[in-house]
Amino acid sequence: MRLGCNARVIPFAALALMMILFTAPQCRAQFSGGEVSSASAFSIPQAQLIQPDSLNRLLQAGGANVPLMFQVGSHLMFTQAHIPGSIYAGAGAQPSGLQLLASKVASTPKNKLIVIYCGCCPWGHCPNVGPAYKKLRDLGFTNVKALYLANNFGDDWVTKGYKVERGQ
């Protein structure tokens, strides 16, 4: 039997699609099929990621849409450069950091848009955003996004010319 054109193309297209899904870092959490530790940034659902340009647009627009932002990584990096208006909330990889984060959101409405970010190292190696995201979800926050910084804060925010400030 002679296969039609589509019958020959579809398996290759499917294979190509699978390869894309399995190699795109932000997709691994959902398509790897294996267990993803909650400590991993990959544990954050893709729908809960916000891209730097999207966040920048939100900040530029101002008003009520501006999220509550927390840097959940290294304090030393926060003091060198952070997103204006963001608050240092402790390293998500450490229990003390998660405690600090919980205290910072204690009086925040559960449906408030919260954006967390770190950018200490490449997304797949970041030990902080995964636990911080889980903590906020466990506390009942329903509108939590993690800023997707593929390489680090310098590459994916600062070099793009988005605003930063220094200090505590």
């Binding site: 003091t79 950018g119 310098g154």
Partner: peptide
Amino acid sequence: MGDEKLGILYGGVLGLP
């Protein structure tokens, strides 16, 4: 041990390593 001053001195250490 590094600090903010040393990071900035080297152009900003905004990701590791």
